[in-house]
Write a protein that binds this DNA or RNA. Sequence first.
DNA 1: GCAATATGAATGAATATTCATTCCAGTGCC
DNA 2: GGCACTGGAATGAATATTCATTCATATTGC
Lengths: 199, 199
Amino acid sequence: MPPTATAATTTTPDAKRDAILDAALTLFSERTFDGTPVPLIADTAGVAAGTIYRYFPSKEALVNALYRQWKGELRRVIVDGIAGGTTVREQFGLMWQGLWRFGAEHPRAVAFIETHHHASYIDDESRALGQQIEDESIAFIEAAQARGEIRPADPCIVMSLVLGAFTGLVKHAGADGLMLDENATRESEEIMWAALRAS
Amino acid sequence: MPPTATAATTTTPDAKRDAILDAALTLFSERTFDGTPVPLIADTAGVAAGTIYRYFPSKEALVNALYRQWKGELRRVIVDGIAGGTTVREQFGLMWQGLWRFGAEHPRAVAFIETHHHASYIDDESRALGQQIEDESIAFIEAAQARGEIRPADPCIVMSLVLGAFTGLVKHAGADGLMLDENATRESEEIMWAALRAS
DNA sequence: GCAATATGAATGAATATTCATTCCAGTGCC
DNA sequence: GGCACTGGAATGAATATTCATTCATATTGC
């Protein structure tokens, strides 16, 4: 394999592309997709409008790339939490702390994912990724229920409740100035585990 | 007083205005504010584009009227729940069931309120209404904590968690086809009370 | 010098809003 | 009762603006 090609890609793994994605994340999370003109994304990213079309074939392709990037990161947090623990309690703790850290570091990403979840311009591949996360979460809940460690409620309800609570927390924190606080992590984790655990 | 004038107003308390608001609710919740052309709202409502400007001075005024209408309804549900019960457990039960019914009957309204909460075109009066609901909710939580009936966590966190969980539930149910189910109401109420109650 | 890359003014398609016109219910007059 | 009249309500084509996308030109790195 040619080492130069790989090296070049490693040095500048697409600084412009990343700047565009980052600007889009900020703007889409604050003003929605349709409310954000492409030239504004360009300005914010520090590039010209035309440059965006060198990296993404259309505004829709851009929003889908962004969605997949962050939904993928979120998935890794959940999967790693599940993989990292041995007991259900431990798995949930890791997952919640991972989510919390993710929310504290990337509040814009949480808002963006939430807002664009059911949008019409989200394509099939992006939607499939969302579905995969749901399936994996529900499989985890069902397994834990089978072991009698999570209360035997509809797994769909349990998942929506927990993910919804997390999203609500991040969104509210973003508006005011909560988060990162060590104590709040523990508090919220305790509350949610009290909600989940059997009997 | 002229009885005819009053009668006329009673018969049609603004059928067109209501049709416009209803069409806007559907479209804004499905496609966002900026993603919804005014002529499409007009078509959906069964009126001409110009007619909308007879009832609302601008698209922004329309979205604010809509926001206040539904945020007001939501507030009544919460306030009535608190007012209707004598114990904290009972108050929470009424509130959750009220929210549940509201979500089942008006899923579009829940999605709309959630999506437009922090939007830039939401004016000060609308924002104040949102703040009022937060203040009232937090006052309720603090009072219950003082009586030792809700766990002594940051009231802000508790509120975000509960409201977020509710929103997550409705949004997910809207996508698939949950809700209205008598059993699911009870299940989710139990889960959330387990999360809240002291020790 | 020459590819590859970046630029931003120009283009054409949408969009919010306006306004000249049509419609209609109610009123007074025969 | 029938009939012209009037003012508010409704219309939808026209206007002025905004936006996604393109492309001829400029810049960069080698």
